[in-house]
Design a protein around this nucleic acid. Structure first.
Lengths: 235, 235
DNA sequence: GTGAAAGCGCTAACAC
DNA sequence: GTGTTAGCGCTTTCAC
C-alpha cells in the first residue's frame, strides 16, 4: 500500500490539489461539504502530510538534536527521558547521538546534523571537549544560526542558554547537612574531578568543611578517574 | 550567516543551478575547472545539501525510528548505544522515542513517525503491548510499507525480522553451570515474570534443575514486579 | 560543457 | 468556492 499524497486525494475527487490542501487544513475558503468528504477520505485512508515536504516548505523540522556524552549512566538516561518527554508533548521529535566523550565524534555529529535535519541542539559536552577547551564547533554552529542549549557539562564562555546544577553549593550544603546530623568524618568521592562540575563540588566540599569547622583530610578524598574504572566495562 | 544553497552558489559564479548540482556531485559532464572552483567555494563556505530536500527527492530519509520501552535500564541503554553507533557508521541518524511501557504511547510514536520522517523502525515492545496482546499498530505499519525490526521483547506472530536472546537455554545453561560448580540451592530472581522472555527464562531454569537432578523449590523463586519496585523510582 | 524544466509533496498568494 | 502558479532545495532528463 503506497503512501497517500494530496495529489492522490485530488484525483479521487476530481478537484485541484490546492482544494485538498485547504480542505485538510480546514480553510474557510472551502465549502463544508467538500471539506467533509475530503477529510473523511483522508482519515479513512490514513493520510499524513509528508514530513519532508513540510519541513522544506516551512524551513522548520520540529526536531531537536540531542548530543549526550554517554547513555550508560543513570543521570544522562534520566535527562534524556525528560527531554524526549517534553519534546514530544510540544510536537517535537528528538534525534539523539552519543559523543562517547569524544571531541571528534561530537564535532562530527554536529556537522552531520547541520544540514537542516534539526532546528537546534540540546547537549552536554564531551569530556574531551572540556579538557581540550576547544569549542570552535559550538561557536560556528551558533554563528550559523542553529541555537544550542547546554546542560550539566557546559562551557561558560559560549554565548547560549545553559541549564546547570549548583554544584558548588550542592556539595557545600551536603557537608553542612551531614555535620548537623552529627557526622565528623565526611569523605568526598568523585568520578569527575577533572571536569568543572567535579571541581566545583570539591571546592564546595572544602568550603563546607571550613564553614562547620572540620579539618580537611586528604585521605578522605577519593578520585576515581575513567582510566581506573574503564577496565571493568565491556567494550 | 544564512545557510548556503545551490542557488546562491549558482549566482556567485553566474552559472545555472544544475551546473552547480552536477559540479558538486562531481559529474563527468562538467569541466574540471568549473568543478574545482565550485567545490572549493562550497567547501570554504560550508555548503551542505539540505536534508529535507534530499529526503523529499530520494524518498528516503536515512534515519531510523527507535522505540524503547525505557532508557532507565542498563540493558536498553546499551542496546541504544549499539544501534546509534551502527547507524551512524552507515550514514543513518536515529530518532529515539520512549514508550514508557505504554501501549498508547507506543502507538502514538509510530503514528507520529509514520509520515516520512523515518525509513523504518527498530523497537522493543512496551510491556503493556505484550500483556494486551494488541499488535494492530505493528501490523498496519508493516502493511503500509514501513519495515520493523523487533528486539528482545518481540511478538512472534508479527511477520518481521527479530533479534532475540535465547532466554530458555540461557537460564538452562546457567543452572547447569552452577550445578557443575557444586552449587545445590539455585534461586531464580526475575523482574519480568509476566513477560514472555521472563517465562522462557523460568522454564529454562526449571528444565535445568530437572536435567541436573535438583529439586524445584518454590521458596527459591522470587518475582519482583514493577508495582513493587516502582515506589523506589522518582517520577 | 552548460542550461532549462520537471518533479519530489506541500502551502499560499493570487486569479477566476 | 475552486483552481493556477510559484516556490521550498535538490536531482535528473533532455536540449543546446
Amino acid at each position: 500500500m503506497k503512501k497517500l499524497t494530496i495529489k492522490d486525494i485530488a484525483k479521487e475527487f476530481n478537484v485541484s490539489i490546492s482544494t485538498v490542501s485547504k480542505a485538510l487544513n480546514d480553510s474557510y475558503e472551502i465549502s463544508q461539504a467538500t471539506k467533509d468528504k475530503i477529510q473523511k477520505y483522508a482519515k479513512e485512508n490514513n493520510y499524513k502530510p509528508n514530513f519532508n515536504a513540510l519541513s522544506l516548505k516551512n524551513r522548520s523540522t520540529k526536531t531537536i538534536g540531542v548530543i549526550m556524552p554517554t547513555m550508560l549512566n543513570y543521570f544522562f538516561a534520566q535527562v534524556f527521558k525528560g527531554i524526549e518527554d517534553a519534546a514530544n508533548k510540544n510536537g517535537y521529535k528528538v534525534i539523539t547521538c552519543i559523543s562517547n566523550q569524544s571531541h571528534n565524534k561530537e564535532a562530527e555529529i554536529i556537522e552531520m546534523l547541520s544540514n537542516g535535519s534539526i532546528d537546534g541542539f540540546i547537549l552536554s559536552m564531551a569530556k574531551e571537549t572540556e579538557l581540550k577547551n576547544d569549542f570552535k564547533h559550538f561557536n560556528e554552529t551558533i554563528e550559523n544560526g542553529t541555537p544550542i542549549v547546554m546542560f550539566d557539562r557546559v562551557a561558560h564562555s559560549i554565548d547560549c542558554d545553559k541549564v546547570i546544577a549548583d554544584d558548588y553549593n550542592g556539595a557545600l550544603n551536603t557537608v553542612e547537612f551531614l555535620h548537623k546530623k552529627g557526622h565528623k568524618k565526611i569523605a568526598f568521592i568523585s568520578t569527575m574531578s577533572d571536569l568543572q562540575i567535579g571541581k566545583q563540588r570539591f571546592l564546595g566540599y572544602k568550603k563546607g568543611l571550613e564553614n562547620v569547622g572540620l579539618p580537611f583530610n586528604d585521605d578522605l578524598v577519593v578520585n576515581i578517574l575513567e582510566k581506573d574504572y574503564k577496565k571493568y566495562e565491556k567494550k
